[in-house]
Computed example of a mutant assay.
Amino acid sequence: MDQIIELFRHLINPKWIIDHGGLYLLVAIIFAETGLFVGFFLPGDSLLFLAGFYGKEICASFHDAPFFIVMLVIALAGVLGNMVGFWFGRKSGPVLFKRKDSLLFKKKHLYQAKEFYDRYGGGAIFFARFLPIIRTFAPIVAGIVGMERKRFMFFNIVGSFSWVFSMMLAGYFLGKKFPGLKDHLELIVIILVLITTLPVILKLVFGKAKIPHDHHIVDESSEITESK
């Protein structure tokens, strides 16, 4: 049990991820956070920012590839992650809404993502990239409600590249401009996490997602599937 707790602590520590896994572990985590519901707790934003800050080290871990190639690989991992989430939503969405809560799955996150999708439509796939937790469940919800594949892929690709490139370039240029910030990275990460999670925190505190009866969601998903 102690080993599992220790692993969990490492997985939410961006600096440890970069030091111990380089680009390979970084790609795996971005893929998991953007497509597998068990990855909602992973630190995508701060991890990408630090990956940009330590751009040279990340490039060195991938055969000294150019920084642009590194960003491209990570962005593609985000695209593939969302594709898996979308496929998973299509295949087993109704089952998820019936699933009981567990340590790695909270049904309320699914409803929050659905509410976000209902409010912003296809654009939710783009905006969700910049919101922790929501970005994990948004593609699953898009699959459940039967979003058209081409439309989904457009927002998926644009969202992934915008998210990855903006976060990594911010870290890269800030690191070049102020190299002394390496001594205060923990504070920077805390501030970044607070900024990126603030919308979700406000949502949880001031507005809880309405959780309808499960059969309503199942019926809705079944009607969409039957109509296709």
Score class of each variant (00 low, 15 high):
122 G>Q: 12
79 V>P: 05
149 R>L: 14
164 V>G: 04
220 E>Y: 13
45 D>F: 08
81 G>S: 11
136 T>Q: 02
198 L>D: 02
112 Q>K: 00
17 I>V: 14
126 F>P: 04
45 D>A: 13
4 I>A: 07
131 L>G: 04
48 L>D: 06
99 R>G: 02
184 H>A: 10
47 L>I: 14
19 D>N: 12
158 V>W: 11
119 R>F: 11
91 K>Y: 01
43 P>E: 03
151 R>G: 12
116 F>V: 12
49 F>R: 11
57 E>D: 15
220 E>K: 08
9 R>V: 08
97 F>K: 05
49 F>M: 14
13 N>L: 05
30 I>R: 01
161 F>L: 07
59 C>M: 13
15 K>L: 13
223 E>G: 08
59 C>Y: 02
207 G>Q: 14
180 G>P: 13
90 R>C: 15
177 K>I: 07
143 G>C: 07
193 V>Q: 05
142 A>Q: 00
26 L>H: 05
142 A>Y: 00
214 D>R: 10
46 S>D: 08
215 H>Y: 14
159 G>K: 10
224 I>K: 14
107 K>I: 14
69 I>A: 15
162 S>R: 10
141 V>E: 13
116 F>A: 12
32 A>L: 12
164 V>A: 03
137 F>I: 09
84 V>L: 15
32 A>Y: 00
140 I>A: 04
180 G>H: 09
52 G>F: 11
